[in-house]
């Protein structure tokens, strides 16, 4: 085991997460993609902690508090999504929350009507 391989592995997971976040259109897919970022960062922390900084408590404290706060944020986002249901299938089917999608109307002219 080598720290370089761990870093490369972590970077690949980061890229998977990045591609997934940018390309996904569905809420659940985006959430899963965001999890990849967490995994990638955790691999970084644990890898560096094991191979570079022996007996470091700093990273463990950081990871502990960061994970709690991050999952709190994720929990309230997921809760909000599933607590406000439509029960109208075609509305859910047309849901597109691509994070970085930019239409022409997002910066040029007036906004097009989403409900049309």
């Amino acid at each position: 085991m080598n720290i370089q391989y761990i870093s490369i592995f972590s970077f690949i997971i980061f890229l998977i997460g990045l591609c997934g976040t940018i390309l996904s259109r569905r809420f659940i897919n985006i959430l899963i993609s965001l999890q990849f970022f967490i995994i990638s960062a955790l691999i970084n922390y644990l890898g560096f902690s094991l191979f570079v900084y022996d007996l470091s408590y700093w990273d463990k404290s950081f990871v502990f508090f960061a994970i709690i706060s991050l999952y709190l944020l994720f929990f309230i986002i997921v809760f909000y999504n599933y607590s406000k249901q439509t029960n109208i299938y075609w509305l859910d089917a047309m849901a597109d929350i691509s994070l970085f999608k930019t239409d022409k109307s997002d910066w040029w002219g007036d906004e097009k009507d989403d409900s049309a």
Partner: peptide, 30 residues
């Protein structure tokens, strides 16, 4: 329904930025 989706989209971008921060801090730690 559209406002709900827009709120979700806005704060998912925010969550994405926060996770980038997390990754950045992990690399600085390295």
């Amino acid at each position: 329904y559209i406002v709900k989706n827009d709120i979700l989209r806005f704060f998912l971008v925010s969550a994405f930025s926060i996770l980038l921060l997390f990754t950045g801090f992990s690399i600085i730690f390295g």
